[in-house]
Design a protein around this nucleic acid. Structure first.
Length: 346
RNA sequence: UGGGGAGUGGCCAAGUGGUAAGGCACCAGUUUUUGGUACUGGCAUUCGGGGGUUCGAAUCCCUCCUCCCCAG
């Protein structure tokens, strides 16, 4: 009896190829569209209907059963609220990491199992092996940064067929299979929500006031439209001209002030160690003092580091300075191609 | 209303007779399943206003306006 796999079909190329590969490999495949968000933001109509249609088309092409799981409420509670609360608190949260943790590899997994699935699969560029998370073949597209909070248990029930291919290969396969989504453009922006800028999105939920932009030497440079919109290292959107570009080094939510510097080497922008909390380890916690690598933003190169634990937190010590480490964003630890887990920068 | 200095696109800023550098910002695009970064492209027929000299002026002359500094 072939194993039953529920594949998350987003309506994009990657998940389409995922489903196709699994079917070829002899699995009993069911395609599932997760409806997590359907609201329009002014100027940015929500693409969920087109995505749903594309997912359905692929399911029809492959002649596999197709379902829709409606997770809108849970997505809003677990991901959207988390994101808005984080921004309100002055940090820069990463909603897509939360989405993987709470929705795709918890709710979707559980729902699929309840529906009789043996396994789930997604179109992530990553590899899972016996409960371990490994980086993708295509280092350029590797998405393990977004997956470090997934549980070992979930990984034992997850397939990432795409992880063994490069993006160009996936594109080629999609073409070979004549998938309806073969030529679809990469989707970007907050997972599921569409191409909305974070600012436009937040403005739907938060009222903001103008505040001061203050330079490294205490000078008032201008006004911003709300400290909540700015994040560490950010250059654009300040509307301050005159000479050199300015980068955000910090902000005060209480004062509604944004602090910037025009000095690229400003020590506020560079750190050689930092702390993380909300630790999550997929298998075992790493060993203090062990030589590891860390990634502090998606697609950033891996940096050598060591970890030290302090209660429920940990300190990451780097061998070179990293730019604009941002509270709320995640630091993910690797031992070569093995993803260990990580935590949230504080 | 005495003296000195300055006015170039939203900002900073080259250019002192030969037909408007550059940077920042902004906009668009690329990269990217968060935010951010980075990269590419676009962006003054015009140099505070008005006259004049000249084949030709942002650059010279006259005049008006504005700002800054020192005097008072």
């Amino acid at each position: 009896m072939a194993k039953k796999v529920y594949v998350g079909l987003s309506g994009g190329v990657d998940s389409s190829v995922t489903a196709t590969l699994l079917k070829q490999q002899g699995y009993d495949v069911t395609g599932v569209y997760m409806k997590n968000w359907s609201q329009d933001i002014p100027g940015y109509p929500c693409p969920w209907k087109e995505d749903f249609q594309d997912a359905k088309r692929v399911a029809v092409q492959l002649d596999i059963p197709f379902k829709m799981f409606d997770f809108e409420k849970q997505y809003h509670d677990k991901v959207v609220d988390y994101m808005i609360d984080g921004f309100k608190a002055g940090i820069t949260p990463n909603p897509d990491i939360m989405c993987n943790q709470e929705i795709k590899f918890k709710l979707f997994l559980d729902t699929a199992l309840e529906n009789g699935a043996d396994l789930i699969a997604t179109g992530h560029y990553a590899r899972a092996n016996q409960g371990q998370l490994l980086t993708a073949k295509d280092a350029n597209k590797d998405q393990t940064y977004f997956l470090y909070r997934v549980s070992e248990k979930a990984l034992t029930k997850t397939l990432f067929p795409i992880g063994d291919y490069t993006k160009p290969e996936v594109r080629k396969l999609a073409k070979q299979f004549s998938l309806a989504t073969a030529a679809k453009k990469e989707s970007m922006g907050i997972c599921f929500v569409g191409k909305v800028g974070i600012k436009e999105f937040l403005q739907q939920y938060v009222k903001t006031k103008p505040g001061k932009i203050i330079s490294q030497d205490g000078k008032l440079l201008g006004e911003h439209d709300g400290a909540i919109f700015y994040t560490i290292g950010q250059r654009h959107g300040l509307d301050v001209g005159g000479g050199l570009p300015y980068y955000v080094t910090g902000k005060s939510m209480d004062q509604n002030e944004v602090y910037v510097t025009s000095d690229l080497n400003d020590n506020k922008l560079w750190q050689k160690s930092f702390q993380i909390s909300s630790l999550h380890w997929i298998n075992q916690p790493p060993t203090p003092g062990q030589k590891l690598q860390v990634r502090t933003r998606h697609r950033a190169p891996l940096e050598e580091c060591q970890i030290e634990f302090i209660g429920s937190r940990a300190t990451i010590k780097l061998t070179s300075q990293l730019r604009a480490l941002t509270p709320g964003q995640s630091a993910v630890l690797y031992d070569g191609s093995h993803v260990l887990g990580g935590g949230v920068i504080i």
